[in-house]
């Protein structure tokens, strides 16, 4: 079972995630997203080799976000509070049953989104995703390879900031100790950082063209990506799991 998810065609994987997200957007009961969340987490952790620690670490920011959404929807929900549905009062706010349920639903919706996206990110090579978009969705190679070239810049970004920092040090720039000075230096770094990024981009473009790149569709691929029956199987499986959680929720309400 290990590494199974990693070999699914990236476009199909993205499409499956996309379908789930769209369907989730129409659901305001708390049971479906809650069920679905449990299913995804169990499924992903068993079908892809992702450590539990990593998963939890990445989930933390979403928990905060989910809590925020839950809170807002519960307090500012549009169902007016009546004597019937009043749950409890928190200071100046009155919280009623309907709004609270919607809040919980939104919270779990966000957790589902996060779980789906983590499933996608942890198991997909971005370059292969781009190539798959070119090969399966007829994305223009000019654009796709342009993006890949830009993507190459990502790991260099940290070094780039460090280099600018060092240059300012060496050339007698001010020392940055206080928070205020740090903020001021942020401003001083943005423009040089962007400028050097653009310069590198132009060089990369020259390198691409010097290797005969024209952006036309007439090219072969070293990494060919195909859609096999098992990819569709995966797609159907995801939809099936969603329907299962939907029917479970029907039993609850």
């Amino acid at each position: 079972m290990n590494q199974q998810l990693q070999t699914i065609n990236p476009t199909i994987k993205a499409a499956a995630v996309f379908c789930c997200v769209v369907m989730l957007s129409f659901i305001y009961n708390p049971y479906t997203p809650a069920c679905f969340y449990v299913i995804i987490v169990v499924g992903v952790l068993s079908a892809a080799r992702i450590s539990l620690k990593k998963w939890l670490l990445f989930t933390i920011p979403f928990l905060i976000l989910a809590a925020g959404c839950m809170w807002t929807a519960a307090v500012f929900g549009k169902v007016p509070t009546t004597a019937d549905n009043l749950l409890f009062e928190a200071g100046p706010f009155e919280i009623n049953r309907e709004n609270a349920l919607v809040g919980i639903s939104l919270g779990f919706r966000i957790l589902c989104f996060s779980a789906l996206s983590m499933m996608f990110i942890f198991t997909t090579d971005p370059i292969l995703f781009m190539l798959s978009l070119v090969q399966q969705c007829r994305l223009s190679p000019k654009l796709a390879y342009g993006i890949i070239a830009g993507f190459r810049f990502l790991p260099l970004l940290k070094d780039e900031v460090q280099i600018i920092q060092q240059a300012h040090k060496i050339r007698g720039g001010a020392s940055e100790n206080g928070l205020k000075e740090k903020l001021a230096s942020m401003k001083r770094y943005t423009i040089p950082l962007l400028a050097s990024a653009i310069r590198k981009a132009e060089r990369t473009a020259i390198a691409m063209e010097s290797k005969g790149f024209t952006g036309s569709r007439n090219r072969t691929y070293y990494r060919t990506l195909t859609v096999a029956p098992r990819d569709w199987l995966f797609f159907l499986l995801v939809l099936l799991l969603f329907s299962v959680s939907f029917f479970i929720s029907l039993c609850f309400s």
Partner: peptide, 9 residues
């Protein structure tokens, strides 16, 4: 395209 993509990154 590459410049645009790098700015985006």
């Amino acid at each position: 395209i590459v410049v645009m993509s790098v700015i985006s990154v």
